[in-house]
Nucleic acid binder design. Structure first.
Length: 670
RNA sequence: GCCUCCUUAGCUCAGUCGGUAGAGCGUUUCACUCGUAAUGAAAAGGUCGCCAGUUCGAUUCUGGCAGGGGGCUCCA
């Protein structure tokens, strides 16, 4: 054997001469926060030799990649603990996810919350025993031999090379290249205490996990994400570089919980879901109704200004309409079952003498709008024809997916269908996208990106040429907006591609908002026509668009975005007047009357509570303006403001106070 | 739809190892109350989600159904 050669590496941008066989650990051994290295763009374990000429960069535990490695390694530690606790458990997959990780297990009995607590303790033991993660390449035969008794791992080995078919997270286990097994080696004894088929990379040792992890919940999940497969038990967890990071994360979750629209909806008396009505069917209380009305009124105003016309259509229809539209073919399962009516039977024989009809609750408004278009001959001069409706639709959502206001069975779409010529299509789409973004901004959202959903070959109608043209047009319009554009292959509805606008809320979560869909197919199915300038009959193009998506869902989003503290123009109660003592009740009522005369939603709190209690009540109700009047104010013909942040503005002349409030509402500021 | 957990006063939750229940907030009443997040007292309010079964007796145990939470799958 010859002596090791010197090789050149580019370490963090600088050329370095090192001995052959140098590892990441050799380069960064003194920096504990370096957990893996990036070698020519790929993440590698610290103990792997680095090939000559490679570009090497340190990956620290608090970087995005470093966190993923930390979480993946924590998942392994958890799996090791699970196999100690449940000897019968078989390993599924265990990838990192946003903010954490999960691992799936086939176990005889589901995990209990007590199990999770015990597992956390067992994990700490493993972490403290400072096991090393050691990578080992194996052949397929070896892998199968070592994973005997782990049926799911064996299945994954068999799938290697087709990892895109293997299902969610599976490529983290087997990857694309060689098969590898990671041994967990006890620091003292050198014994292999646990192993798993995994492509890595991993932390050098378990000590780096420290105590900044938590197991958060357990739930069932289908093996390889397929409903037809067996359900495994999944445990979710989270892991962070330090305990403080973990606490900050838990605080973020707590903040999201405080903002939960279902909780705030009850606290602020906005809406409820009476059991008597059934799952996913909300009722809006007066305060929620006020918010909703403010949302809708402003939307109507803007639609009028943008050249939309208003239509109204019924909630149920005979089945034929949805046969023509194709909905019964594609979405029957998502529709409420039909009502069979008007059937007549012979009273004696019981035989049907007149067949009945099936009526369906409407799941979408578009077919009805098409009938309005078709109700008389149309001229090119009428186009673009923009039909708008707050249309209530009913969808038979599966029982497990109904969720607060965001996923309901009865909802109202701010739905419009635009009929235009092919030549107008692109301009109309551009105008529509700008209109959508502009309007969303007025409701306080300003951080957007776009998603372009393209054809699902399994679920579509119409020719390829038509789809291509529609998709190209949408892509051009989306790109012209300058917003980030994310592809969503196969995400389109059966009748055409769509752009959806995604918005980030005040705490950084993304919500799918508006959709703009291009449709050449329904005009075909409904044989829609207009007469062109040359006298010929032409088929219009149809654009489906909804801004809020559903009014209910949008309200849920706004509640969470504002944490229940609506901007003044949306707030159910905009002003509460609190007299300092009973003597000033009449003075306060006069001020409130002046505000009401200006269309402000103002109330006076004349109850028997003492003054500070009334302040507290208004505060808890998140009222934007609290007006206070006592002796000093009354003598000066003035009133004092108390704002939601606790700040004050005292002794404002009444007329000025009124106009301040009126202006703040008109400005739609937040 | 599947897995799992849950359902006690309007709300948030105690409690009964099987003998029909309690707190805080809220509500009502009375008294008090002149300056920025809780004045005091009293009262009302529950077939312990619904339906069966076991039992002398079920809010408590068992089963079914409904509603809800967390996931999975789905989301025109």
């Amino acid at each position: 054997m010859s002596a090791p050669q010197n090789i050149t590496l580019i370490v963090d941008g600088e050329e370095n001469q090192v001995t052959e066989g140098t590892t990441g650990a050799d380069l960064y051994g003194t920096r504990r926060e370096v957990v893996v290295v990036r070698v020519d763009g790929e993440l590698k374990d610290l103990d792997q030799p680095i090939p000559a000429g490679a570009k090497v960069e340190a990956v620290t535990i608090d970087s995005a990649d470093g966190l993923n490695v930390l979480r993946h390694s924590t998942a392994h530690v958890m799996a090791q603990a699970v196999q100690q606790l449940r000897k019968d458990s078989k390993l599924g997959i265990g990838p990192y996810i946003t903010d954490g990780f999960y691992f799936d297990f086939d176990v005889d009995e589901p995990f209990t919350p007590e199990d999770l607590k015990q597992l956390e303790k067992m994990m700490l033991k493993i972490v403290n025993s400072n096991q090393r993660f050691v990578r080992r390449a194996v052949s397929e035969t070896e892998a199968l031999a070592e994973m005997a008794g782990e049926p799911y791992k064996e299945e994954l080995i068999g799938l290697k090379g087709h990892s895109d078919e293997a299902g969610e997270g599976a490529n983290i286990e087997v990857g694309a290249g060689e098969l590898t097994i990671y041994d967990n080696v006890d620091a003292k004894s050198g014994e292999v205490v646990w192993k798993d088929l995994c492509r890595g990379p991993h932390l050098p040792n378990t000590k780096l996990i420290s105590n900044a992890y938590a197991l958060t919940r357990s739930a069932a999940a289908y093996w390889r994400g397929n409903e037809k497969n067996k359900q495994l038990q999944r445990i979710y967890g989270t892991a962070w570089p330090t305990k403080d990071d973990l606490k900050a994360y838990q605080e973020r979750l707590a903040e999201a919980e405080r903002r939960d629209h279902r909780r705030l909806g009850a606290e602020l008396d906005l809406f409820s879901f009476p059991d008597e009505l059934g799952s996913g069917l909300p009722v809006f209380h007066p305060k929620g109704g006020t918010v909703r009305k403010a949302m809708e009124d402003y939307s109507r105003q803007r639609h009028t200004e943008a050249g939309y016309e208003f239509v109204y259509t019924p909630h149920i229809t005979k089945s034929n309409l949805y046969e023509v539209s194709g909905h019964l073919d594609w979405y029957r399962d998502g529709m409420f079952p039909p009502m069979h009516v008007d059937e007549t039977r012979d009273p004696e024989t019981g035989e049907v003498v007149k067949p009945g009809q099936d009526y369906y609750l409407k799941p979408m408004n578009c077919p009805m709008h098409n009938l309005i278009f078709r109700s008389r001959g149309r001229s090119y001069r009428e186009l673009p024809l923009r039909l708008f409706e707050f249309g209530s639709v009913y969808r038979y959502e599966k029982s497990g997916v109904v969720h607060g206001l965001t996923r309901v069975r009865g909802m109202t779409q701010d739905d419009a269908h635009i009929y235009c010529t092919r030549e107008q299509m692109k301009d109309e789409l551009t105008t529509t996208l700008n209109f959508v973004l502009d309007l969303l901004k007025d409701y306080g959202l300003d951080d957007f990106f776009l998603e372009l959903s393209t054809k699902d070959p399994e679920k579509s109608v119409g020719s390829d040429e038509v789809w291509d043209e529609a998709t190209r047009t949408l892509a051009e319009v989306a790109e012209a907006s300058g917003l980030e554009l994310v592809p969503d292959p196969g995400g389109a509805a059966f009748y055409g591609p769509k752009i959806s606008v995604q918005a980030r809320d005040a705490i950084g979560r993304t919500w799918q908002m508006s959709t703009i869909q291009l449709d050449f197919n329904l005009p075909e199915r409904f044989e829609l026509e207009y007469q062109a300038a040359d006298g010929s009959r032409q088929r219009p193009v149809m654009i489906h668009r909804a801004l809020f998506g559903s009014v209910e869902r949008f309200m849920g989003l706004l509640i969470e975005h504002y944490a229940g503290a609506f901007p003044a123009w949306l707030a159910p109660v905009q002003v509460v007047g609190i007299p300092v003592a009973e003597t000033f009740n009449d003075y306060m009522l006069e001020i409130v009357a002046k505000l009401r005369a200006q269309g402000i939603r103002a109330e006076a709190d004349l109850g028997s509570d003492r003054f500070p209690k009334k302040i507290r009540t208004a505060s808890k109700d998140k009222v934007p303006f609290v007006l206070i009047a006592g002796g000093e104010d009354a003598e000066a013909g003035a009133v004092s403001f108390r704002f939601r942040d606790g700040s004050q503005d005292n002794g404002i002349p009444v007329d000025e106070a009124v106009s301040r409030i009126v202006q703040a509402v008109a400005r739609r500021g937040n």
